[in-house]
Amino acid sequence: MGRAVSLARSLLPFLVALPFLWALQRWSPPYPTLVLRYVGINIVLAVSLNVVNGFTGQFSLGHAGFMSVGAYATAKTMLALADVQLAFLPEPASDAVLFGFALLVGMAAASVAGLLVGLPSLRLRGDYLAIVTLGFGEIIRSVIQATPPAFLGASLGLSGLPLRTTLIWVGLGAVAVVVMARRLALSTQGRALFAIREDEVAAEAMGVDTTGYKVRAFVISAAFAGLAGGLIAHSVGAIEPTSFDFKRSMEAVVMVVLGGLGSITGSVVAATVLTVGLELLREFQDYRMVAYALMLVVLMLARPQGLFGTAELWDLWRRKRPAASAASAGPPGGAA
């Protein structure tokens, strides 16, 4: 009974989103669809980075590195499965299952990378962690460039990837990352991450295993960056090491900071605004990056805490708290 309810609660957001995504996929013209796909991928990227930078307060600059691990792992899996069709399913369903599987492989690979980077580097903090993660991102890129061309394509990258990334996949990914982050933020595990952000020494003294939680936050964040990578790979159809360079990491950081460190909806809005904004500015070609940079400068001057600070959109209609619950709590059950 309880199990069924919790399963239903877990699947509900996806079931609600699915018809909308399907309708969009079906009737939206190609260009808006393309932009929306990028919006969704950037939402996955920004919200996942927010778990590390915003929730836990650990400044990571290597998100593109995890993205590339996810992209390459997904792409290699898809290439390996190119001729496979699940016999018991019709072709479209079989393709969907295989792509879902490949995305999961990408997430797993990226989370392993997150663990490998997280374990040694999370003893550092602040600027030092930022530099280490930045270095890590560059190492991944160099390693891929140095591998034999037959394996990961070296500098040329992998091309001819099947274009499987639809709006539905991207939308489900975005819903997944938002649900993941929101449930985390409302849980005791999420509060442990916030405590680390606020005061690491005090968090440790209050029984929070700070190292363990930081590593876990890193792994989760990396996994979803890997998902974003896998989605990009099969949206464009080709990946190369330079698609995931430092600039890409910076873009993600900008989205998180702009939306407000620690605000999930802030990241979602910032990812949307920046992605759509950059597209709209295409008409002005030469002034595009100038306008973009100017917008950031103005926003940071006007609202240094980001658009939302740490607030969330859904707080607006959840303000009314039951006042009775405070009064009804009994005395604590003794010292134990």
Partner: peptide
């Protein structure tokens, strides 16, 4: 974390 994500009883 998984308990939080899947809202287990």
């Amino acid at each position: 974390f998984f308990g939080a994500w899947f809202q287990t009883a």
